[in-house]
Design a protein around this nucleic acid. Structure first.
Lengths: 244, 244
DNA sequence: AAGTGGTCTAGACCACCAT
DNA sequence: TGGTGGTCTAGACCACTTT
């Protein structure tokens, strides 16, 4: 539990306590993306800290990408950034010349089922807990390039519906409609041989090489919120990553 | 060109000038990894800045991973970190239980050739410039899992030799022996069908699915210093990445 | 005990933006 | 013009490590 006051007797540095308080407000959605937060001076008065301490706390949060600041204007809650997610990883064309298009998708299956042991384990669900299972084909410039299977915990995404998902990107929906922003993810890539039915869906023959990408997406507190397995054909597509 | 003095009339913030000066010393190797650098107070005196300004500059560099600090001991030049490079990306076993082993390698070919247009373009070399071309098999627990072709600019790595490379990791050698630390890299992954000769080398049959990983590694100043193309078999191996 | 980095304060001055 | 964040200073006190 995070307090909403600074504890001057706590061994935790004051600026770190301040960081936690601000994070808490963002998580609770009482401070929403794009919103201007109080000025340094206001916060210094409110929490009885020096401006320098507030500056330090805000610096940490800017660094983490939670806030951004504009001289003369103020400090704002950052929009969750999906620039490093799925979309950006795929580039159309081997030569890498063109920037990526936003991929489309067509939903094949949408159902509520009990999580099997693998999925339950990954999503940290108890036995018998339910998940949404969604299967879709992903396209770039109207050409299918991947088949995807997604698992979402039922309790977090209760009421999500097939039509609303339609041809849309999911992470902004998770964030806006369900207050479940995706903060980071784990991905595992492996070459595989394509399955017959998948080959048909992707309109390729059975000897086409594919990559299987398994992703576990996490929200605040390292809570897993999505598991997806994508089978991607390599023809004209590339997975790109910058290692820093 | 970076000066070794602070210019108080410069519009550039003093702490940023300080950051550049320190970086310069690291690049020039006049300050080497592991070395203790002067204390805050000493630097403040030397450059006629307040301790606060020095603190801010050091904070930036700690954040970038160039320095690390220990209370009561001092500030040190960080060792280049290879934890996020090749090694870590491969995990032995689908279940991902065990931590990764350090991969070994066996050199198949080692030659000096003129760069072809593709390689010259990638490594930003002029026409007619020479490169080292190295081909090797990579192993994990004595089992081959990848065939790799590497290209290094001849002028940067003059004198590198086959024997010295042996069964070793390359990036520490680049850094120690040639003052060319790898700072970041671009990777492109694609599923492919294995070639017959490659299949033989990796002791797998010809229908084995593989991933082709192309990496361009850069040093300070975004200068490309290595191009490698790895053909990796997927059996029991996985490429893992954390997206943040 | 002396030196190091870590935290925190109070205040100055500046560049930038909205009004 | 007044408010915002960005830079910079000078100094205090603390926790930690070495000598």
């Amino acid at each position: 539990m995070v307090s909403n006051k600074i504890d001057f007797t706590n061994e935790q540095p004051l600026y770190m306590q301040m960081v936690e308080i601000i994070k808490q407000r963002v998580i609770e959605n009482s401070w929403q993306p794009g919103m201007k937060i109080p000025s340094e001076n206001e916060m210094a008065r409110e929490f009885d800290l020096s401006v320098g301490t507030i500056k330090k706390a805000l610096g940490v949060l800017v660094n983490e990408g939670v806030l951004f600041r504009r001289q003369g204007q103020g400090t704002f809650i950052a929009q969750p950034d999906f620039s490093r997610s799925f979309i950006r990883f795929f580039r159309y064309g081997m030569t890498g010349g063109k920037p990526s298009e936003v991929p489309g998708s067509r939903i094949l299956k949408f159902e509520i089922v009990r999580a099997d042991t693998e999925v339950a384990d990954i999503l940290k669900l108890g036995p018998e807990e339910k998940v949404y299972r969604i299967k879709r084909v992903r396209t770039l410039l109207d050409k299918p390039f991947a088949v995807e299977e997604l698992y979402l915990p039922y309790d977090k995404f209760q009421g999500i519906d097939k039509i609303a998902l339609g041809n849309k990107l999911l992470y902004p929906i998770y964030s806006r409609e369900f207050s479940v922003p995706v903060i980071w993810a784990d991905e595992y890539l492996q070459p595989e041989t394509i399955r017959q039915d998948t080959a048909a869906m992707l309109e390729v023959d059975e000897r086409t090489p594919v990559i299987c990408i398994e992703r576990i997406a996490y929200t605040y507190g390292d809570l897993p919120v999505e598991f997806r397995r994508s089978i991607c054909v390599g023809k004209n597509f590339q997975y790109h990553i910058v290692i820093r």
